[in-house]
Amino acid sequence: MDFGFILSQSLTQAIGVTAIIYCLAAIGLNIQFGYGGLLNFGQVAFVAVGAYAVGVVVVEVGLSLWLAILIAILAATVLALLLGVPTLRLRADYLAIVTIAASEILRFLAKSFDFLGGSQGITGSIGGDFSDLNPLPDWERFELGPISFTRVDMWLVLAGWLVIAILTVLTFLLMRSPWGRVVKGVREDEDAVRSLGKNTYLFKLQILIIGGVFGSFAGMYSAIAKGAVQPDGFVPDFTFFLYVMLILGGTARVMGPLLGAAIFWFLLVFVEQFLKEGVSSGVITFISTTQIGPVRFILVGVGLMALIVFRPEGILGDRKELMLDAR
């Protein structure tokens, strides 16, 4: 077994494109669920809207990527308003039902419209404008200790973490402000905040929009990185992975989504590579190569159950805070 190889593969995934996509969406979900207590079970809808908006505008319409990003932000805002305006006056569980249903409706709509590429999705040079900006020298590979990236991937990873850094700082600035205080108050008890003169409905709408727009960045980034938008990438599992990452990293912690996404992908790839190496070298005999995919999820799932039992507050959370009598 080549542990060096397993480790370098896992580390690459922990900071790679996939982790960045999930991290961006998780930062948005952290604002909605972690700080504001909004049960958004359809964050993937915002990701899909971001991806499809840039895909359609760049490939089908032929406009520049920068204009497409603006349109994608607008589209995510419209989706947040559509979901939020009728449901945010109701109890929290209604938003959960509406968002998960909306995300599936959007996916099936995307599959059935030709101009959205049908079930094939959209393929093309979505990130052309982005690649043109690549400032990196023309090297074969960029070595970072045990891991290395191609010039294209290095630029994608750098830009991705830059966007994550910007959104994280923005989250920090918002949450230390009186605005953030009201948002956290809404999570604890909406009626109490209303009795103190705050229009909680407006605050909830604002966090749904902000979290949704952050989520759409994940979609745009994925479209640019993959040069394609596939409707079946936007299944509800995506949202539930985001929840796992949030709880793993620590909800309502500024750095929670970053840590959660990186560790989640590290673990998933580590287990997968470990099993692969084990099976091919004959050390592991009780499963076959085709079973590795499901088995890694089983193992990671067991690990997460252990986390909930032994450290329910996640890595960055505060046990004392979580265990408070919430009544």
């Binding site: 956290k184 999570r187 009626d191 109490a192 009795s195 003169g197 408070l324 919430a326």
Partner: peptide
């Protein structure tokens, strides 16, 4: 509340995690 009519609740609504 903004106009000065403020109430409290029978079951206290203190915001626990603030």
């Amino acid at each position: 509340a903004r106009r000065g009519l403020v109430r409290t609740f029978q079951l206290t609504k203190s915001l626990s995690r603030l």
